[in-house]
């Protein structure tokens, strides 16, 4: 059950569209993708989670780790289009207070 990651751009903002499950089996691929963006000096990143239908604590941990990494390079990660059940897990773990969460990619991109 591999998660797909498709990269797009809105202006200078990198948009990573995730599809599938962000869990222990996909967390490393996700962090690697973020690290490659940071290495390439991209520090404004939107994570489009419209097609993420499942997230666990490993997936949440990969998001926190990525946010720290991007923050260290002076950038930020914004999250868009959460499905209701995934949003509920963000709220349960209070990570909705740590990440900027937006309704869609454009709203997330213009928030930088």
């Amino acid at each position: 059950m591999k998660m797909e990651i498709i990269g797009e751009k809105i202006g200078e903002v990198e948009v990573l569209k995730l599809k599938g499950r962000l869990d222990a089996s996909s967390a490393k691929d996700f962090k690697d993708r973020i690290n490659s963006l940071v290495t390439g000096n991209s520090d404004k990143i939107v994570i489009d989670m419209e097609k993420v239908d499942f997230i666990d604590s490993s997936g949440l941990g990969s998001l926190v780790s990525s946010l720290r990494s991007v923050n260290k390079s002076g950038g930020d990660i914004k999250i868009s289009s959460l499905q209701n059940q995934v949003r509920a897990i963000f709220e349960l773990t209070r990570l909705h207070r740590v990440f900027g969460i937006y309704e869609d990619n454009n709203a997330a991109a213009i928030s930088f």
Binding site: D56, S57, S58, L60, G61, V64, S65, L67, R68, N71, I89, L92, T93, L95, R97, V98
Partner: peptide, 17 residues
């Protein structure tokens, strides 16, 4: 009360969930 990612644990939420 932290909204700072440096003040948030990266892992260890599974049992709490």
């Amino acid at each position: 009360d932290s909204a700072d990612p440096d003040g948030i644990a990266e892992g260890g939420r599974g049992l709490g969930i």
